[in-house]
Nucleic acid binder design. Structure first.
Length: 461
DNA sequence: AACATAATCAACCGCTCATCC
DNA sequence: TGGATGAGCGGTTGATTATGT
């Protein structure tokens, strides 16, 4: 049995090495010395990477193979970037984390020269700092992009995530996000972790092991498996492994799952037609930009315009419809909704939405009509799902049972939230072109200290 | 200057997964 | 098929450095 020698409590490496060497086959722990590094480098250069457990045997190092691998991967291998993360890299990390959660290795694969450990340390530092400040972890655009990412992911993968898919013909960055996730909690956690009892909810987002998310609808459906989202053709291309961000330039959508062909309503939407969701690669053009005050607190957010951005709201609407249908089906005859049925519903939903668009009807107006008699900015909260007379016949088809969580999500979508300078680099056109002031009474949103926006965090943020 | 606190970094631990026999 | 083994991943810890008082 090997003995483990630790020098954690002091820096007297020579002394510890002596101690370690007193025991044949003993393993040293703690910081690596330059001599050890040199030995490891020489060994790897001679024999190559891998077979780490043979390294201590063949090189004379008193380190376990695991430690050797880690040292090599994190510090010694060539082409490693040292130093602070660039703003661009930080932006990528935030985006990736919103989509992938704590998948540090996968994130590292998108950041050439960076290690999972580095990214993890960076993120944990950032999280701690922002949590202390009571700030949201993600910029608003990231939240939306991540949401859309998961929508598309769910769309692409009818069935729960199967890890085996990632290694074959499918995009590399498929999330292992919790599938059954309370939508509004998800949103709140993304926006402001303080609202969610901090770490527990944060982990609920990214680490299903630590906190099993509560199913939103008691089924496989949740906010993220909307299937009627329309994206542009160019974003529907599968992406390959490798450093997507830096090979192709920074592009959030480059890691998005491709669109399932069946979900695009080709008969209703000509390939060349430009829908709000297809006006750019990510399919989210025009989301950013509104401003307003909520509870006397300044929000900086992506403007959530129903007129110009029916995609996300449409997603929510159709999702609710789909959920209702599925739930009704289950509750009525306890029949499991088949994938084919769901697919059929999805296509139907798309047609409904696009028919409404063709007739000049927006989802916004649909909601207002549906909710006539209520204040204009009030989202209908009824769960009856019954049709009401005197409505736009097209929209009567969109017979949505408004789940509380779904409504909460919509109600709480902030209208303005600061975007950090480092993050807004790629969104200048968007923010300048679509920024507008919302005069509507804003919905209640997460509490964010006005002076602690995204763009005034020291250092990293 | 001395101390306290925060931030950063490096390394280890435990677990999971894939592969081999 | 199931156990052994190796490799990798994510979480955590502890040391060091930076910053504030």
């Amino acid at each position: 049995m090997m003995r483990i020698i630790s020098n954690n409590n002091n820096n007297n490496n020579n002394n510890n090495e002596e101690v370690a060497n007193d025991y044949e086959g003993s393993l040293k722990k703690g910081p690596w010395t330059p001599d050890e590094d040199a030995i490891l480098i020489e060994y790897v250069n001679t024999y190559g990477e891998g077979n780490w457990n043979s390294v201590p045997k063949n090189s004379g190092l008193s380190r376990c193979g695991k430690s050797c691998r880690l040292r090599w991967a994190n510090h010694l291998r060539p082409n490693l970037k040292k130093g602070a993360f660039s703003p661009e890299e930080e932006r990528v990390i935030v985006d990736l984390h919103a989509k992938l959660g704590n998948k540090w290795a996968r994130m590292a694969s998108q950041l050439p020269g960076r290690t999972d450990n580095e990214i993890k340390n960076f993120w944990n530092t950032r999280i701690k700092r922002r949590e202390r400040a009571g700030l949201p972890i993600y910029p608003p655009k990231v939240i939306r992009d991540a949401t859309l990412y998961h929508l598309r992911e769910e769309q692409y993968f009818e069935k729960p995530y199967n890890s085996s898919l990632t290694s074959s013909s499918f995009p590399p960055l498929l999330s292992s996000y919790p599938k059954k996730l309370n939508a509004s909690n998800h949103y709140h956690a993304l926006v402001n972790p303080k609202k969610l009892n901090n770490s527990n909810h944060y982990h609920a987002l990214v680490n299903p092991k630590k906190n099993q998310p509560i199913p939103l609808y008691g089924s496989s459906s949740n906010l993220f498996n909307y299937h009627g989202f329309v994206v542009s053709n160019n974003s529907a291309q599968p992406v390959s492994h490798g450093s997507q961000y830096f090979n192709n330039g920074f592009n959030i959508s480059s890691i998005m799952p491709p669109l399932a062909p069946s979900s695009v309503s080709s008969s209703q939407t000509p390939p060349d037609s430009v829908t709000p969701a297809s006006s750019n690669v990510s399919g989210v053009d025009g989301f950013m930009g509104a401003s307003s005050k909520v509870n006397n607190e300044q929000y900086e957010v992506a403007p959530f315009s129903l007129e110009g951005n029916r995609s996300l709201l449409g997603a929510l609407v159709v999702e609710g419809q789909s959920i209702l249908r599925n739930n009704n089906t289950r509750s009525e005859d306890s029949t499991v909704v088949t994938a084919a049925e769901k697919s059929s519903n999805k296509r139907k939903s798309i047609v409904i939405m696009e028919n409404a668009e063709e007739r000049g009807t927006t989802v916004d107006s649909a909601l207002k009509k549906k909710n006539s008699g209520k204040s204009s900015n009030e989202i209908p909260m009824t769960s009856s799902g019954k049709k009401q007379s005197g409505k736009d016949p097209t929209l009567e088809e969109i017979d949505v049972s408004w789940d509380d969580d779904l409504c909460s999500l919509l109600n709480n979508f902030p209208t303005e939230m600061p975007t950090p300078e480092w993050y807004s680099g790629g969104d200048k056109a968007e923010s300048s072109g679509h920024q507008k002031t919302q005069t509507n009474t804003p919905p209640p949103g997460p509490t964010i200290e006005p002076e602690l926006g995204w763009n005034n965090m020291p250092s990293i943020c």
